[in-house]
């Protein structure tokens, strides 16, 4: 043992240098993530003249003129409201259909189970936003074109595989014995689900619902293809990229980013649990 021990001081130096590099690396990565967002918010919280001015300050002037300009711009509030409506609908649709499927996969063994599971996983190998193209035609025929529901259906298709896989793992994480114990203590299957499984799964289900919300909130392509009058915020910003002034773009960008920041913070505990099992 003694012949491999590096003399005390030198090892300490190496350690200190290592720790410094490690810390510097972390700091660099943190700056890499945060600084661009900071710049966006500096722009959003400065007056339009500052946004287009040069050189720029690296600190916002907290002049809300850009935000007001954005808020009062023709169609913005409407788009914002549409985005929220579509995202909420997406959340309800994807969890409403995904959670029962996830529960069935986690609790039952039945012919066709593996087929369904592979099917769901397989959808991830397809560029789902492209679905908007054929659905645009289908929606015109059914009157769903340019509606909040129509877009929400497409977004629900984007979010459904995740909802199924995430709830599958959530329910799998709740021991079957808890449910069985409830049955032996007088519960029907439904009662056991409501009294035992649901309270335990609820935070996780809420997290996956938030995730579905974010998927819809952020989606650009399908939203741009499927809406004309009832644009969501992303579609609105995309369609007006060539014509809108910079302050509008940046305030809009900030409006897109802010809820995402909050939501990711809200579900941060579940992010890793959700993705861990989405692997299988």
């Amino acid at each position: 043992m003694s012949d491999v021990t590096i003399p005390g001081p030198r090892r300490e130096e190496v350690n200190r240098a290592g720790r410094f590099l490690f810390g510097a690396g972390i700091a660099l990565l943190v700056l890499w993530v945060l600084v661009p967002i900071w710049f966006l918010f500096v722009n959003a919280l400065s007056a339009p003249s500052e946004v287009t001015g040069f050189p720029k300050r690296f600190w916002p002037s907290f002049d809300l003129a850009s935000v007001r300009f954005f808020w009062n711009f023709q169609g913005v509030t409407n788009a914002l409201w549409n985005s929220i409506k579509v995202a909420v609908l997406t959340m309800i649709l994807s969890i409403g259909m995904g959670a029962p499927a996830g529960y069935a996969l986690s609790r039952f063994d039945f012919p066709g189970k593996e087929f369904f599971r592979v099917l769901v996983i397989m959808t991830r190998a397809f560029p789902l936003p492209l679905l908007a193209l054929p659905l645009a035609v289908m929606f015109i025929r059914t009157g769903l074109d340019d509606t909040v529901l129509g877009l929400a259906l497409v977004h629900a298709m984007l979010a459904l595989p995740f909802a199924v896989l995430i709830t599958f793992s959530l329910f799998s994480g709740i021991p079957v014995e808890l449910e069985e114990a409830a049955w032996t203590l007088g519960c029907t299957r439904l009662q056991a689900f409501v009294k035992v499984v649901l309270p335990l799964a609820l935070p996780g289900i809420a997290a996956s619902a938030v995730f579905a919300f974010v998927i819809s909130w952020n989606e650009v392509f399908a939203a741009a293809v499927l809406t004309i009058e009832n644009r969501t915020l992303t579609a609105f910003l995309l369609q007006s990229l060539n014509v809108s002034p910079l302050p509008l773009k940046f305030a809009g960008g900030a409006a897109l980013v802010l809820p995402a920041l909050i939501f990711i913070f809200a579900v941060r505990k579940y992010l890793f649990a959700m993705w861990g099992i989405a692997n299988r």
Binding site: P175, E177, L178, E180, T188
Partner: peptide, 20 residues
């Protein structure tokens, strides 16, 4: 009959004490 209608009680290997 389902378990609830059998007049039984059960103790499970991992106890199955409801965590909530």
């Amino acid at each position: 009959l389902p378990p609830r209608a059998r007049g039984i009680a059960m103790v499970f290997q991992n106890y199955a004490v409801f965590p909530h």
